[in-house]
Write a protein that binds this DNA or RNA. Structure first.
Lengths: 200, 200
DNA sequence: TACGCTATTGACCAAGCGGTTAATATATAC
DNA sequence: GTATATATTAACCGCTTGGTCAATAGCGTA
């Protein structure tokens, strides 16, 4: 006996929300059509009615995770810092802190990341998001490099290093959460970046 | 009809080798008891006879991957470098190059890493391996910090940053392989670390 | 109120999974 | 050469999965 009807948009949203909750708790392995349907209090047939294939549901969820995680939004108080080097440092710290506030989402992104190794579609979407994220960093890296004479690094290289530093911490922290704390990590980053790219 | 018999050790080794090959090609998702058995040209019942549960097979494979990937062996030519800072730099470059030579194994490790988010046993084993890896780095970081006056970072923090730099590159590279090359990355790392921890 | 459209359900299916077990071929000991 | 122990196989089981589909209940419309 069918239940109440809803518009396409609201039902998709409802299903996606349920999928997100399921994925956070059980991981992508536990992200089954039936589990999502149960979470949304719907029949599993209906989930496949709105998302023709399971892959489409998974990809829609990935898009949501990418938009929430890999979008670089530079706060005004950082954007107005005059010295490029300090601006880069502040942005690094800000991003590490931001990602650290949502460890479960980072874990979910890492799960998709790993599956990207064997799934070209997933790999492509993460690649696009990662590229945009790196590009946003490259601008600031460019300014930092330009401001200092004799810098030997390229903007793209510096941006890639920045991404490594940002995602490296939550990735390590998710394995042993209480092994080292964020302040210690950021202090080391600041100490290293303090004289980047060439000492005064 | 049973086939030829073999000793416990050799058969386990044969199965583990097959499991490794299957996992590299199909990922952990494709690491089924039947796929491993087919790869080893054995019945799938025999695989479960030697590894009582599928988990045990997966954990044995993880141990193998960890031993091959997260073990820090310092070459003599690096160990004999007199200046601690240069030694740290050389070791970083060496490790990035080493991991880059086996991208498939790194991908497999990342798959396990992601599953560690929802599996305490996997998480524990990776945590132990990661800890040992970081500890090996901490010694060199200590010397580098001690050699320079006024360093503000702690050895553990510097070691964690080093790990981020090392694993950050292959992790990014596996998403878009031809986006940036290793030389550009290492150049940026060297430029940043060039004045670590305090400029001369 | 009656009709038509469709979102929704539940039953169903084939495939694949991990795991168990009786039968048996093989190696070993006597 | 015979008996014993066991590594090995193939058939089997119960379960879960993604996916399909006829039946139907809810909703807009006339």
């Amino acid at each position: 006996m069918p239940g109440q009807k809803a518009t396409e948009a609201t039902r998709r949203e409802q299903i996606l929300k349920a999928a997100y909750e399921v994925a956070l708790r059980r991981g992508i392995d536990g992200l089954t059509v039936r589990a999502v349907a149960a979470r949304a209090r719907l029949s599993h047939g209906l989930v496949l009615f709105h998302f023709k294939r399971k892959d489409q549901l998974g990809l829609a969820l990935l898009d949501r995770v990418l938009a929430a995680t890999l979008s670089l939004r530079i706060p005004d108080e950082i954007d107005t810092i005059s010295k490029p080097r300090e601006r880069l440092q502040a942005l690094l710290g800000h991003e590490v802190h931001r990602l650290l506030e949502e460890p479960r989402r980072i874990r979910l992104l890492l799960e998709y990341w790993a599956r990207g190794a064997h799934n070209a579609v997933i790999r492509g979407r993460i690649g696009a998001g990662l590229d945009a994220y790196r590009t946003a960093f490259r601008k600031i890296a460019e300014e930092a490099l330009h401001a200092k004479a004799g810098g030997s690094g390229t903007p793209a290289g510096v941006a890639a290093v920045a991404v490594s530093l940002i995602i490296g911490y939550p990735v390590q922290a998710m394995i042993d959460p209480d092994q080292f704390d964020i302040e210690e990590y950021l202090a080391a980053v600041q100490a290293i970046l303090g004289d980047f790219p060439m000492a005064a």
